[in-house]
Amino acid sequence: MKNLEELKQIRERVRRNLDMRSGDFGVKIIVCLGTCGIAAGARQTMNKLADLSAQSGRSDIVISTTGCAGFCEQEPMIKVQEKDKEPVTYGHVDVAAAEEIFNQHVLKGNIVEKYLFSKGE
């Protein structure tokens, strides 16, 4: 364990962050992490997205995961859900693609056609 002082500092900062978050999300990114997704490198994709979302400083971006969606050949897949909009699913999202989708779609709201798999549920 790190020393207690350091933990206390983290605690204070986390408290402040929690206060800022109202529990409402602006954009939800769902990464498919079944066996197929993991084998295709979806964990790297998720970590990249988490890093990017931390760097962006936006507290309304939520990253979550789900299991295999049944289109294993399209893995790694992610679903981007903007609030009050139809979800958009992307396929073959490697680390570079994740960065592009994050910058274009999550931050600016433009769908990246290159990696588009489907729109809607």
């Binding site: 790190k2 983290i10 900062r13 986390v14 962050n17 929690l18 988490a50 931390a54």
Partner: peptide
């Protein structure tokens, strides 16, 4: 779930 705790 906080990024700072996860990094720790």
């Amino acid at each position: 779930q906080d990024i700072e705790i996860l990094n720790f």
